[in-house]
């Protein structure tokens, strides 16, 4: 009885001897305020920011791998590198699982004005690729409806224009990288700058498909060799 009382008294939030001491819920959501302040409490992203990407519903393997890549310096973005620098693999996976399990409505970010021809070029790249430039279709890896593929390939729906275009740019300037062979670096290297604008604008402005969950594992055959997809359970 006495022991039970002691345990209760030591639980976070139970330090309430002091009226001014805040009550702190013992939840993961409360613990990861450093993440949710930009990515949203449910990983919905912050559309108003035009940048912070949605995490909700993305494959957990992909999310955990991104945290690891920021920690290892493969992905460069100082605020993220600082935030995750001391997370353990177990904590990383717990956080990735949390965001992966969230199901919240998609919100849209503003897209810069582009012509119909640009959007058409974007859709062409996303659905069919550009065989002349050896650019595979986004859909050939990211799923028919671009909603991602379990356990490792992220969806490309509902992401802000600025985020998508800056990621493709980052692959070209080597500030975003992944386990070699880095297939996305190859793809980004074959795109023209106008292609990046086109595909980012089309992806960011596209009407959402009816089903937004990632496709089941093994339902795509990547046309390029991707190091990250060769590790069991790993994510791009």
């Amino acid at each position: 009885m006495a022991a039970a009382f002691l345990v209760a008294a030591m639980a976070p939030g139970a330090f309430g001897q002091d009226a001014a001491a805040p009550q702190v819920p013992d939840t993961l959501q409360q613990r990861i305020a450093a993440c949710t302040t930009c990515h949203g409490v449910h990983g919905e992203g912050t559309p108003g920011s035009k940048y912070f990407p949605r995490l909700a519903g993305k494959p957990a393997g992909y999310l955990a791998r991104q945290i690891q890549n920021f920690q290892d310096g493969l992905r460069k973005y100082p605020p993220m590198e600082y935030t995750v620098r001391n997370l353990s693999p177990a904590y990383m996976h717990e956080i990735a699982d949390y965001f992966s399990a969230q199901q919240v409505p998609y919100a849209r970010s503003p897209v810069p004005p582009v012509t119909a021809a640009v959007l058409q070029r974007g859709e062409q790249l996303a659905r069919d690729g550009d065989p002349q430039r050896k650019v595979p279709a986004c859909a050939s890896c990211h799923g028919v409806e671009l909603t991602g593929v379990e356990p490792a390939i992220p969806g490309l729906v509902g992401l802000p224009y600025d985020y998508i275009s800056s990621q493709l740019g980052a692959w070209r300037t080597h500030t975003r990288a992944m386990r070699k062979p880095d297939c996305m670096a190859v793809v980004a290297g074959r795109l023209q700058e106008s292609d990046i604008t086109a595909v980012a604008a089309w992806l960011a402005s596209r009407t959402l498909p009816a089903h937004v969950r990632p496709q089941p594992p093994g339902t795509v055959k990547p046309p390029l060799s991707c190091g990250v997809l060769e590790v069991p359970g790993a994510g791009a």
Binding site: V24, Q30, R31, I32, A33, T83, N86, E94
Partner: peptide, 16 residues
């Protein structure tokens, strides 16, 4: 910057 305190055996899931 905000951020997490170090993840340690004694505090494996720190508040941030």
């Amino acid at each position: 910057l905000g951020g997490f305190p170090p993840v340690t055996a004694g505090n494996p899931r720190p508040y941030s």
